[in-house]
């Protein structure tokens, strides 16, 4: 699944992220249960030990590769092919913005904005097509998730407006 490295040297930088994250969490976990009764600690200690062991073997393997000059510390492969890299990073930032604003904007407005900007960032050229797509999908989502299923997803200005319209109508 790794992206092919351009040179014959294996890019190992990004391969280290998962083990490092795992070890960091394992250390935090062990710290968090340090004063707990034994039954609450047992599996955590065992799993942390297992993870340490496996990661140690992995680091050793990487080190041996590096010593033989067959590895280079490189993280860029993680971001995929260079073409469109900034757009994809923009898409990740957009997901972050969605998380921050969804509670205020409510389902429909935030979904519309996300789909509009997301499809543009994804490579759709025409703003009009992006807007049409986002509007149809957001309205369909609103009808399905909010009106029909009554999920308790945050409501916002659009839902408030529709509520007023419904009140006037009935």
């Amino acid at each position: 699944m790794s992206d092919e490295a351009p040179s014959d040297r294996k890019q190992v930088g990004s391969d280290l992220i998962i083990p490092v994250l795992g070890i960091a969490y394992a250390i935090y976990y062990v710290y968090s249960v340090w004063e707990f009764p034994a039954e609450a600690q047992r599996s955590g200690f065992f799993l942390a030990g297992l993870l340490f062991l496996l990661c140690a073997l992995f680091f050793l393997r990487t080190l041996l590769l590096a010593l033989r000059g067959k590895a280079e510390l490189e993280f860029l492969a993680l971001l995929g092919p260079p073409e469109g890299r900034w757009r994809r990073l923009g898409f990740v930032a957009l997901i972050g913005a969605y998380l921050l604003t969804v509670q205020t904007l409510g389902f429909t407005v935030s979904t519309f904005s996300f789909l509009f900007l997301g499809s543009m960032l994804g490579g759709l050229k025409s703003a009009r097509r992006a807007a049409t797509f986002a509007a149809i999908a957001a309205l369909a989502g609103w009808l399905f998730f909010i009106v029909l299923l009554g999920t308790r997803f945050p409501l916002g200005p659009f839902e408030a407006l529709m509520a007023q319209v419904m009140l006037l109508w009935t």
Binding site: V147, L148, L149, G150, L155, E159, A160, A163, M166
Partner: peptide, 9 residues
């Protein structure tokens, strides 16, 4: 009813 109730803010 479900629809109407969820519409009511």
């Amino acid at each position: 009813a479900a629809g109407a109730s969820s519409l009511l803010m």
